[in-house]
Design a protein around this nucleic acid. Structure first.
Length: 505
RNA sequence: GGCCCGUUCGUCUAGGGGUUAGGACACAUGGUUUUCAUCCAUGAAACAGGGGUUCGAUUCCCCUACGGGCUACCA
């Protein structure tokens, strides 16, 4: 009974991986690592009509970027393959179980076409019965191996009539199972319908494939989104009918990720509308060419993305909020996952990024900066820029606000010019420039004391001249310490800019 | 409509039969700063409603409301 923990992330390749999906993968990863188990990736592509080119690769690349790669599965390998359901179907891994269910009387052949059923639903709806289901009440009047004679069923099968296999849902039976997050959940089978297990195209549906695969892959815990909660009783029944109840995995249904404003599931639309990514990586839709932004490309660190995601629906119960992946592994438990949906908060996400940015060394930030700019600057210099800019940045790009570190100002901030640049200013800046020219050691502290002495002699306040000094050197009305900027820029560059400022403003 | 799940500051959440209901983000105010940012301090801000049970309920139970999910030969 002490089985090795094995969990899986089982997305279907119908498009880019949504951040909600990443969180599901993350919780699976954390749980597996915490218990020294396996985390596998299985691709659920039983719906061939929804296949999207590149989606599978996108999923793998996303998990890779996040640093939560499975240790087994599609694109990785392992002893339980194949890890893609279409390939498992080709390897004939599902049919026998569908047959087993038919033979044991827990499933049956159904010959009704999708169109016929659609019509049936339409009719029912018009008759004010919006809840038409293929179930114990209706199955008797439909075309299936329960209502039809044995001979007719055989004849239909012999001539190759298309058919599906449906579960024969029992009447009035309570199905009870324990959810690791929600506790006991009970559903009466009268509310469940005869779900299709095997489609007429020869593919199993999710419901069958999922159970067969989880069983064969020796999955111990199914950690998935809340949207699966209603079909969990069906899955429990399937385990029972297949004779696998002994090793049935434990279930944990995660709360949904909700949109920041209003209600409902977080969707791609919300990201577009409110200006934040919903996907880990940028995605280009192969059919429309439309590009959706990704956290990576938007300048988020994977650490902050993961940290933020971990806290949407889980918390450690301590005041600590900044967690490395390893710390998350250590702290994570399903018991501390909350039951209710979590609204995504773009502001908090930004805050997380700021925290991580500030925790990085100047050198590291400098090299990240190097990728963003043109021109040949030494790493040391860029580290210096980072040192001055990091306090005011949430993203690497924010540090580019200090464009004056990479070239002379091309224009001078109009508001500051209007407010601070007085007729007597050029003369004062000129004088200040002379003082600076005579400074023995070009250091921030020396420049500052030189500056203050100058002010005292002139009987001026900081506000009268410092903003103008900043203006000439950076072209801006605000920024980090001017003396530190001047030190980094160097004596010659600073003095040149002061003169140019006097000439141009 | 039916079924299932949920509901603590605007948001993420802690807590739990007796608490000044705690923290974080965001917000506001003050301090530091030439400025902006940072930082520090302070503030405003919540137990959906109604019934029980109880000496006492935000906490336990029931109902209602609200929200969400599911209700396909999609996952």
């Amino acid at each position: 009974m002490n089985r090795r923990v094995r969990v899986r992330f089982a997305p279907s390749p119908t498009g880019p991986l949504h951040m909600g999906g990443v969180r599901t993968a993350l919780y699976n990863y954390l749980f597996a690592k915490k218990h020294g188990g396996d985390f596998l990736l299985r691709i659920e592509d039983t719906d061939q009509t929804r296949f999207v080119e590149g989606a599978e690769n996108y999923i793998i690349e996303s998990l890779k970027w996040c640093g939560i790669m499975p240790n087994e599965g599609q694109g990785i390998g392992g002893d339980f393959g194949p890890y893609k359901q279409s390939e498992r179907k080709d390897a004939n891994m599902y049919t026998q179980y569908a047959m087993q269910l038919v033979e044991s009387g827990h499933a049956y052949y159904a010959f009704d076409t999708a169109e016929e059923l659609e019509e049936m639903r339409e009719l029912a709806k018009k008759a004010k019965m919006p809840n038409w289901q293929y179930n114990s009440i209706t199955r008797g009047s439909l075309k299936n191996s329960i209502s039809l004679s044995e001979d007719e069923v055989k004849a239909r099968l012999d001539v190759g009539d298309p058919f599906t296999i449906r579960i024969k849902m029992p009447r009035n039976e309570d199905v009870r199972f324990h959810d690791e997050i929600r506790g006991w959940v009970t559903v009466n089978t009268n509310n469940l319908d005869d779900k299709v297990l095997y489609k007429s195209d020869g593919m199993p549906t999710y419901h069958l494939a999922n159970i067969v695969d989880d069983h064969l892959m020796e999955i111990t815990h199914v950690i998935r989104g809340e949207e699966w909660l209603p079909s969990a009783p069906l899955h429990v029944l399937l385990y029972r009918y297949l004779g696998w109840e002994e090793t049935m995995p434990l279930f944990a249904h995660l709360p949904l990720l909700l949109k920041p404003d209003g209600n409902g599931k977080l969707s791609k639309r919300d990201g577009d509308r409110l200006g934040f990514p919903v996907f880990p990586l940028e995605w280009k839709d192969p059919s429309t060419g439309e590009i959706s932004s990704g956290y990576k490309q938007k300048g988020y660190f994977k650490e902050s993305f993961i940290n933020m995601l971990a806290f949407l629906g889980w918390n450690p119960g301590t005041p600590q909020e900044i967690f490395s992946l390893d710390e998350l592994v250590e702290a994570f438990t399903l018991e501390r996952v909350s039951k209710s949906g979590a609204k995504f908060d773009p502001d908090k996400t930004k805050w997380f990024n700021q925290q991580y940015l500030r925790s990085k060394s100047d050198l590291e930030l400098g090299s990240l900066l190097k990728e963003k700019i043109q021109g040949d600057f030494s790493l040391e210099y860029l580290a210096g820029v980072a040192n001055l800019m990091k306090e005011r940045a949430s993203f690497i790009d924010d540090m580019l606000e200090g464009d004056y570190f990479f070239g002379k100002p091309s224009e001078y901030d109009k508001d500051t010019v209007n407010k601070k640049w007085k007729p007597e200013t050029p003369a004062l800046i000129s004088e200040l420039k002379e003082r600076f020219a005579n400074v023995s050691e070009w250091k921030s502290e020396v420049l500052e004391s030189t500056f203050k002495t100058f002010l005292e002699e002139k009987g001026l306040g900081m506000g009268a001249i410092l903003p103008n000094f900043r203006l000439t050197v950076t072209g801006k009305g605000m920024g980090p310490s001017m003396f530190a900027i001047a030190e980094l820029l160097g004596k010659e560059e600073t003095l040149t800019r002061m003169q140019e400022g006097i000439d141009k403003i």
